[in-house]
Amino acid sequence: MEAIRVCDLHKSYGDVHVLRGIELEIPRAECVILLGANGCGKSTLIRCLNGLAQPDRGVVDIDGVDIAGIRGRHLRSVRRRIGVVFQHFNLVPNVSVFQNVLYGALGGQPGGLLRTLPAIAPAELRDRAMACLDRVGLADRAGQDCRQLSGGQQQRVAIARTLLQDPDVLLADEPVASLDPRAGRAVMELLLDIVRERGMTVLCSLHQLELASEYGDRVVGMKAGRIELDAPRANVSRDVMGGLYQGVVRVDDAPVAEGPLPVTRSA
């Protein structure tokens, strides 16, 4: 069964029809790169996949649970199995790197926040958090404030937080867009190594063509709120990917036209 199944997904913000009938299926343990120019709706799609945004219409099925419209405890238990890595890292300021990693366990067992405070966290959890931090190569930074770290290091801390959460599905929203190219490549490689080790299902958005042509099993291309391209990476040429950046790409520039567009698919 598919880990992620999205059917006829629509989402608007005010007058802007951002997602215009998204269809997407991702089998377990596949790594999909979501490619598209800025403003085409990638972030919105990712936010709809873990309930940070509520879709207006359509099905969002994660491991057999339709999360469109669920709330409260039910939503939290699904979210626990979906890790998210953000473009701007989203670490909590004024607390240590170690504390930030421990936050990955917030959604786990009862006890919530208290269980993740370094002073009273169970020894087993503290050890696991350190192991995650070590996996991303930052064990020696545990006691620092995250603002003392470089961007690449901050994103590694965020990855360590997701590692401790140990989700089945990983959503990454332009995880390297705010890093310089070298740090970005290193973080991208670390992220993909980790998801392969853990056998996670991945949807990772990127807006740089160069990176998209190097990573992942499959490329899904978005343009103006629709999916325009969906094929194994090996079968997609750079020219085809480049087409995603031509013409009207932003949802707020495109007239709201109904009806499906032809999707470039190849087996």
């Binding site: 873990n50 940070l52 939290r76 238990s77 699904v78 979210r79 626990r80 979906i82 890790g83 998210v84 953000f86 701007h88 890292f89 989203n90 670490l91 909590v92 300021p93 936050y103 990955g104 366990a105 917030l106 959604g107 786990g108 919530g112 926040l113 965020a158 937080r161 959460q165």
Partner: peptide
């Protein structure tokens, strides 16, 4: 951002 990151782990309101 940080609040969303914590929500995304399945953390509750408190």
């Amino acid at each position: 951002g940080p609040s969303e990151a914590l929500e995304s782990t399945g953390a509750g309101r408190f």
